[in-house]
Design a protein around this nucleic acid. Sequence first.
DNA 1: GATATTTGATATGGTCCATAACAATTATCA
DNA 2: TGATAATTGTTATGGACCATATCAAATATC
Lengths: 177, 177
Amino acid sequence: MTVSKAAEKSSEKPADTAKGRKDAAELQGQGAGEALQLGELSEQLGYVLKRAQLKVFENFLRCMASLQLTPAQFSVLLLVEKNPGRNQTEIASTLGILRPNFVAMLDNLESRDLCARIRSTNDRRSHILVLTDKGKAVLARAKKLVATKHEARLNELLGQANREALIAMLAKVANEF
Amino acid sequence: MTVSKAAEKSSEKPADTAKGRKDAAELQGQGAGEALQLGELSEQLGYVLKRAQLKVFENFLRCMASLQLTPAQFSVLLLVEKNPGRNQTEIASTLGILRPNFVAMLDNLESRDLCARIRSTNDRRSHILVLTDKGKAVLARAKKLVATKHEARLNELLGQANREALIAMLAKVANEF
DNA sequence: GATATTTGATATGGTCCATAACAATTATCA
DNA sequence: TGATAATTGTTATGGACCATATCAAATATC
């Protein structure tokens, strides 16, 4: 209701001048059926970055379908494996995950017996994170899937050297932009 | 409630074996205070892509603060300017926006008098999209801000050649992955 | 030992993304 | 032609992700 009113208003305010009406008439049936021109959009960093990221995540999820791991979950398992004995706050913050949002993530991983919270004896407020044996096994399989299906795809698309250059540049952007 | 129960269960199932208890004890106070090791994470395409994208969007929003344009809104204005006379479905779909979600976006742009919906005379179901004069002016200012603040930042970080190589590779990933 | 801080957790709200459904209009084709 | 199917913009709605405020328990600070 406010929507259609806004639409009426706007289509009559700026476009209903003499010039506006002529322009609108000329546009009727403009390039119907033809593909749209992306123009400057195809060189906008943010645009191409976002689209690439969506495609990569999509591919990742397909590769991981058998293990049911999202990119975020995979990153948690990787980080916990590399840094066993750290607490939730440390793991979450280095991944850019806010502590409240990390709770449900861990609940999920723990309910699947991939990860365990252990009450710390030094600081009984905090939970130390460890991969379970199953978690280690699943992560090992996940790494193989990523290497053979996911990264291999990027290699055949860009070549080894370009792939490394791309990741290095992205890391630089992520860290120093 | 199911949460704490799951936590108890998992922390006692895989980690409370003789070996599990010893490992947990050894981990207490592991590398406290030291920075975490990213390990293989820093070479995961998806991870570095996502973090770079967040940083770039963040920077974009800062550069555009005076114009109050999000990356998505900027892309809509760019595409409508390059392809005037196309309808909502065409613009939305080439941007990867679903039609239902595009409605509110247009309501916003139209309420700010940056964009106008014009009922098509050829097909009276569809709305033709056009930039208003104000929309063209705002977009022109936005382009300048992007060029001088946003892209310039990337140039001084990577250099002109690397910047172009990065965007080309990202485009390839976005299109062919 | 009183006060402040930290940790994990809950509740909650916002934004973005996806699907189903609807009225109006147009396309299809028997 | 006229009945049926498809399309367009729209609404409603639910899920995923992200951010803030708040809390109890434990610890740190002074």
